[in-house]
Design a protein around this nucleic acid. Structure first.
Length: 423
RNA sequence: GGAGACGUCGCAUAGUCUGGUCUAGUGCGCCACCCUGCUAAGGUGGUAACGGGGCAACCCGUUCGCGGGUUCAAAUCCCGCCGUCUCCGCCA
């Protein structure tokens, strides 16, 4: 939810944001109009209601004829109150719907669409396999050689885009995610294992039921949603609360399974485990002062990069263009690792500054020095996912199909230095 | 799944049977001030969120788990839902 005051005071800012996203700027004017209607109908209702309450007190004291006379007046008034109340709540509902349709106000993102990202930096150098004298195997071939990934049985049991991580594959994922949790904990995050089924309010509040609602699994019988990231549960964690940020940001590291329908991705990344319906993720989530949000965003990005350094991957950081931002994000940085067999970069992390957008929808506030409340800022960022295995296998493979274990993961694999293919 | 109890302002509770004097009382906590020769004791006042109006002091409305209904009027009566606890059943 965007700030209604911003909409009233600076509608041009919101219009410009809508244009930058490729969204409809006319929504701004429709919302302003609905807001005006809501306020006038609310004022009418409230004055009638005040009159009704005042008369109600007289009724309580009155007797006989006086009471009967009052009752005819109040009866009439009651009808009017009811009608005005219905009008006011209709107007409010319309405004809400319009406001829910407006994505967060873009903040500093480059203009354009999906391909108009700006490369912030590149870190590390991709290996030259030609110079090393062998053609790299892709992650699935490597994973099958190591008996680490089984997509055939995944499909048998659950369908396409499902998989088993087996043996060393399962251990590798646990190692990666444990390394991520440990890094988060030493940075002061509170580790959390979160629910993966959430109520509609929580899902809506985090902004995932807008234009991307098709991406989300829904359990109709129970009216619950499967989360695509623990961000959802972590954002909902402090919903309807006034939290204390006087000691600095509240930082949580969520560990969860993540579910995505991949409805619009038919035919994309069908081989292996790059794009799957279910995976695991360690996610950083931060509640902070709005003034501190941009700086916190940089800190989250730095933690992501620290994690990428631990697994020794070459990557680049991109500043996502306005047109490619999620509903809740004002700005987003992705870290993309080099994928040798496809000779392209693959997104491994994504950190979004949602400013006060999610907090406003979810009612997460803080107390200001003058005693009032205001929405906080929320941010999220990836610290490790199943997909990282793809980049780790491909980038650290050796000519014989074995895979060197990056040093940062060895403590989590009992000191293992090389993953050897099974005979 | 069955039966029962409960859900009120940060916490604890009164109010619900018998609808209007509830502008939701009280205690604790917290804040300010006063008193006191010390970190005790005491006194006075203040102490929810959200929305609307106003330059402001302030005024008004909404909210007693949530949503409907009855009524001139609902914390209070009726219906549905959610949550917590206890017991029973079933299953890990």
């Amino acid at each position: 939810m965007i700030d209604l005051r911003l909409l009233r005071d600076n509608p041009d800012v919101v219009r410009a944001s809508q244009l930058a996203r490729g969204d409809d700027p006319a929504l701004v004017d429709a919302a302003l109009d609905a807001d005006a209607r809501r306020r006038s109908s609310l004022t009418e209702f409230e004055s009638l209601r005040a009159e009704q309450k005042a008369l109600g007190k007289q009724v309580a004291k009155a007797q006989g004829d006086e009471k009967a006379e009052l009752l005819t007046r109040t009866k009439h008034l009651a009808e009017q109150v009811k009608a005005r109340q219905a009008e006011a709540s209709d107007a409010e509902k319309q405004l809400d719907e319009l406001l829910y349709g407006i994505a967060n106000v873009v903040e500093g993102a480059p203009p354009g669409g999906e391909d108009d990202y700006v490369v912030v930096k590149e870190v590390g150098t991709p290996r030259d396999f030609a110079a090393e004298g062998f053609a790299p195997r892709d992650h699935l071939e490597l994973g099958e050689g190591l008996a680490a990934i089984d997509t055939a049985r995944g499909a048998k049991v659950s369908g396409s885009r499902f998989y088993f991580l087996t043996g060393i594959g399962a251990r590798l994922e646990l190692a990666l995610l444990n390394a991520a949790v440990d890094q988060a904990v030493s940075a002061g995050f509170t580790p959390m294992i979160t629910p993966t089924l959430v109520k509609p309010d929580t899902m809506r509040g985090t902004g995932f039921l807008g234009s991307h609602a098709d991406e989300v699994y829904h359990l109709e019988k129970d009216d619950l949603y499967l989360v695509g990231t623990s961000e959802v549960a972590l954002a909902g964690y402090h919903a309807d609360e006034i939290i204390d940020l006087s000691a600095g940001p509240k930082r949580y590291a969520g560990w969860s399974a993540c579910y995505r329908r991949e409805a619009g991705a038919a035919g994309r990344d069908t081989r292996g485990i790059i794009r799957v319906h279910q995976f695991h993720k360690v996610e950083m989530f931060s509640y902070c002062d709005p003034e501190d949000a941009a700086a916190e965003h940089q800190r989250l990005l730095a933690w992501e990069e620290a994690m990428l350094a631990k697994v020794e991957l070459p990557y680049r950081v991109i500043d996502t263009a306005a047109g490619d931002l999620g509903t809740s994000a004002a700005r987003k940085f992705d870290c993309e690792a080099w994928l040798p067999t496809q000779e392209r970069f693959l997104e491994l992390t994504s950190t979004s500054n949602c400013t006060t957008f999610q907090a406003r929808r979810l009612g997460v506030r803080e107390r200001t020095v003058d005693g009032t409340t205001r929405p906080v800022a929320t941010l999220n960022g990836t610290l490790g996912t199943t997909r990282w295995i793809v980049a780790i296998l491909e980038n650290h493979q050796q000519a014989d199909g074995s895979v060197r274990v990056p040093e940062g993961l060895r403590p989590y694999l009992g000191g293992l230095e090389v993953l050897e293919p099974v005979a």
